[in-house]
Nucleic acid binder design. Structure first.
Lengths: 221, 221
DNA sequence: TGTCAATTGGCAGACACTGACATTATTGTC
DNA sequence: GACAATAATGTCAGTGTCTGCCAATTGACA
């Protein structure tokens, strides 16, 4: 399957992603037209839409790669691990593989700038949330399978994954809000937010050490 | 400010929402054009876009109303209440006011059908998630204010709200996935999901009674 | 009644996206 | 190496969303 045809397709796809990202980051997402992206790769507009079903897809392609990788890593986690620990661990592993996963297509620097832009561009953020939600469904299914629960009937895997994804998404938004921060900062912020999940829900907010307390004895704020 | 001009504007806006919803529900969202909606109210397309900045906005107008009402109710909650309890309680109150909030513009029946359609229409779901996230930011700010915390620096309000919103969104998706259920069912499913939040994160999945246990002693799945 | 300001309609145009068909390039085969 | 089968691409026309611009209409208020 390494014929000339496949290689050319792969090269065109990569070139489109690359050109699109450079244009998006330098001019903004809305200000960049599909015609510009196609022209930069010397390809017709019609061909662009054969590779990507819409303008958002080319912008979120690297994110899609990350999500797929994260899901793979999660599947490889030991099944005797606590669910939340598996999710957190898988995310940490995926972050560690960030460079090798992304650098094959784009410079990390460009990817992070694009990610920040995504969080500040409504059209893109909406699409990203949609993508994140599709991933959420897959995660829920996998978690339920792992624990031998019914993903449709039992709400608990769905609830846990929803909380997990909600918090990681919020962490990324908080990161982007700071502006021009590194990927290391993104990782650190995401992980520290996750570490607040159990204490915030199960413990008092007076203690910051992450040790959960009995809910019935907690103070209000 | 109850001049004839204001009344006419209000009536046009309501008529547009009503006509749009009926068309969306009967033909589908994508299959309905803005021209059709405008024609149904005997108004030009240009006028439609003066009332709603895009096609999604008219579809999500009732949702926007609900979110605003929920935020209002949350602000009215006693400040000595535990944060998660305030969120849960405010949501329950907002659900109770559903009819009086919505019926002024639309039949509840139509609203619920539209809501279900929203969850199954990617373009709409993306916009809805965006809307939900904007609301999430406001909630976080309000919660931080209430507890005297810094909404930028302290991640805990953000984390708690993210988990809360993530779970309610997931609950709605689970509801819509069942198909043609009542609003009472939506309320019940949402609340039961919220009740799983603390146990799912802090307790073992072997007990379903909602009583959190010490994390260190829980069993894996 | 007449002026002022807000609302609306109509029009042209940019841009995202799609279907149909002709053209070109690659592959496997003789 | 020529040749048919197949896949990728280009071109073109068209639909639908959304915007800027200007003229016409309508309500507010003296």
């Amino acid at each position: 399957m390494t014929g000339l045809r496949e290689m050319k397709k792969q090269r065109t796809r990569d070139a489109l992603i690359r050109a699109a990202h450079e244009l998006f980051v330098s001019q903004g997402y809305d200000a960049t037209t599909v015609d510009q992206i196609a022209a930069a790769v010397q390809v017709s507009q019609r061909t662009f839409f054969r590779y990507f079903s819409n303008k958002e897809e080319v912008a979120l392609a690297p994110q899609q790669l990350m999500l797929a990788h994260f899901l793979d890593v999660f599947r490889g986690r030991p099944s005797d691990e606590a669910p939340l620990e598996s999710l957190r661990g898988a995310l940490d592993e995926a972050w560690a593989d960030l460079e090798s996963t992304i650098e094959a297509i784009l410079p990390i620097e460009l990817h992070m700038r694009m990610w920040e832009l995504t969080q500040n561009t409504p059209a893109l953020l909406g699409a990203a949330l949609l993508q994140s939600q599709a991933n959420q469904d897959l995660l829920t299914e996998e978690l339920a399978r792992r624990c031998g629960l019914d993903p449709e009937g039992d709400p608990r895997p769905r609830v846990l994954v929803a909380a997990f994804v909600g918090v990681t998404d919020a962490a990324v938004r908080a990161w982007a809000h700071l502006g021009h921060e590194s990927s290391a900062a993104a990782r650190r912020i995401t992980m520290s937010h996750l570490d607040q999940l159990q204490p915030a829900l199960c413990g008092s907010w007076d203690c910051q050490d992450g040790r959960p307390e009995d809910v019935s004895t907690r103070s209000p704020c």
